[in-house]
C-alpha cells in the first residue's frame, strides 16, 4: 500500500493523530451520547429559562431567567401532582414487588409447563400502554363498564360506582391497571434471582431445622434483595411509561384528582405548547427520579454487602 505523502507544517500531522487510544476507542460512544443525550438535555435545560412555545419557534431566544422555575415553585397544582406522583410510585412499586415476588415463588415451584407459564406471565408487558388504558377505561366505566355490570348483575351493588371519578377509586383504578401491566417485570427479574440462589444454604437451613418461612425470610429473601432493588430502580424510572395509560383513563382528572407529573407536564408541553415551562417542571421532577434511583442503589449496595458480594 502506498501512503501519499502530504506536505504539512512540521509535527502537525503527528499532533493530530496522537489522541490517546482509550479516547479514540471511546470517541464514537461519546459522540453518540452527546448527540442523543447531552445536547437535548442541555437544550431543554436552556429552554426552561426561556418562554419557548412550540408554535412560536423564535420564542426560544426570549430569556426570562428563573421565571418558569418560580412559577412552578409557587404553583400548588404542580406540587399536588408531585406529591400524588410520589404516592402513586410508592404504592404501585411496592405492590408490584409483592405480587411479582409471589408470582415468581409460585412459578418457580411448578415442575411441568414452566416455560409456558413464564411466557404467559409476560403477556401484559407486551400490550402497549395505550391499549391497556383503553381496556381499563372500558372495564371501569361506570355506566357500560364490565366491573359495574358484573357487580350489579351479581347483586353486590345497586349503584353505579364512579371508578374513574372518585378521588381514591380513580387512583386505585389507575394503580390497578399499572400493576396489571407491570407486575410481571418484577416477576421475571425475581424469578431469575430465584434460579441463581445456591442450594447449599437452603439445604443447611433445612438440616438446622428451619421452617419454610424461616428459610424464605433468612435465606431466600436476602439473596433476592439485590434483584428486587435492581427491579425497583428500573421500574421507578420506567413507571413513567404509565403516562399513556393515565392519559387515556383519566387524563389527570376529574378536577385534577389523578393529576400526575407526567400528565401535567405532557399537557403543558404538547397541548398548551409551553415547552419552556414544561421543561422547568421536568427538571424539578428529575430530582424525584434521582432520589428514587440513589435510594434503591444504596439499598442494592448494602444488600450486596450483606451477602459478601462487595460494595
Amino acid at each position: 500500500m502506498v501512503t501519499p505523502s502530504i506536505d504539512l507544517p512540521n509535527g502537525l500531522l503527528m499532533t493530530r493523530l496522537k489522541l490517546p487510544p482509550w479516547l479514540v476507542l471511546l470517541l464514537p460512544a461519546i459522540l453518540i451520547l452527546m448527540a442523543v443525550v447531552l445536547i437535548p438535555l442541555l437544550l431543554s435545560l436552556y429552554s426552561s429559562f426561556t418562554s419557548y412555545r412550540l408554535t412560536r419557534p423564535d420564542s426560544i431566544t426570549n430569556w426570562i431567567g428563573t421565571f418558569n422555575y418560580e412559577k412552578a415553585a409557587k404553583d400548588e397544582n404542580f406540587w399536588a401532582a408531585f406529591g400524588r406522583t410520589v404516592l402513586f410510585l410508592t404504592i404501585a412499586l411496592n405492590l408490584e414487588m409483592l405480587f411479582g415476588l409471589g408470582l415468581a415463588l409460585m412459578v418457580s415451584k411448578v415442575t411441568k409447563g414452566q416455560r409456558l407459564l413464564r411466557t404467559v406471565m409476560m403477556f401484559p408487558m407486551m400490550f402497549s400502554p395505550i391499549l391497556v388504558g383503553f381496556q381499563f377505561k372500558f372495564i371501569f366505566n361506570d355506566n357500560v363498564g364490565l366491573v359495574n355490570n358484573a357487580l350489579q348483575s351479581l347483586g353486590l351493588s345497586s349503584t353505579a360506582i364512579p371508578w374513574l371519578v372518585d378521588g381514591k377509586l380513580a387512583l386505585f383504578s389507575i394503580a390497578f391497571a399499572e400493576i396489571w401491566m407491570s407486575t410481571s417485570v418484577f416477576g421475571i427479574l425475581i424469578l431469575a434471582g430465584l434460579y441463581a440462589i445456591p442450594q447449599d444454604p437452603l439445604e443447611a437451613a433445612k438440616v438446622d431445622g428451619c421452617t419454610s418461612w424461616q428459610s424464605f425470610r433468612f435465606v431466600t429473601l436476602p439473596f433476592l434483595m439485590p434483584f428486587i432493588y435492581i427491579a425497583m430502580a428500573i421500574r421507578s424510572l420506567d413507571v413513567a411509561r404509565a403516562y399513556d395509560m393515565v392519559q387515556i383513563m383519566t387524563n389527570g382528572g376529574p378536577a385534577r384528582r389523578t393529576e400526575l407529573l407526567w400528565t401535567l407536564i405532557g399537557r403543558t408541553g404538547y397541548v398548551d405548547a409551553k415547552m419552556g415551562y414544561a421543561n422547568a417542571m421536568g427538571y424539578i421532577s428529575i430530582f424525584l427520579a434521582i432520589f428514587f434511583t440513589v435510594y434503591f442503589f444504596k439499598k442494592l449496595t448494602s444488600a450486596r454487602a450483606e451477602l459478601g458480594m462487595g460494595g
Binding site: 366505566n141 355506566n143 357500560v144 349503584t159 353505579a160 360506582i161 364512579p162 371519578v165 376529574p254
Partner: peptide, 21 residues
C-alpha cells in the same frame, strides 16, 4: 347523569346513548 360523566368524551357519550340507557 351517569356518575362518571366528568370523565366522558365523545365516544363514551355515543356508546352510552347507543346502549339505550
Amino acid at each position: 347523569v351517569p356518575p362518571g360523566t366528568t370523565n366522558y368524551l365523545w365516544d363514551d357519550l355515543g356508546n352510552g346513548m347507543a346502549s339505550g340507557t
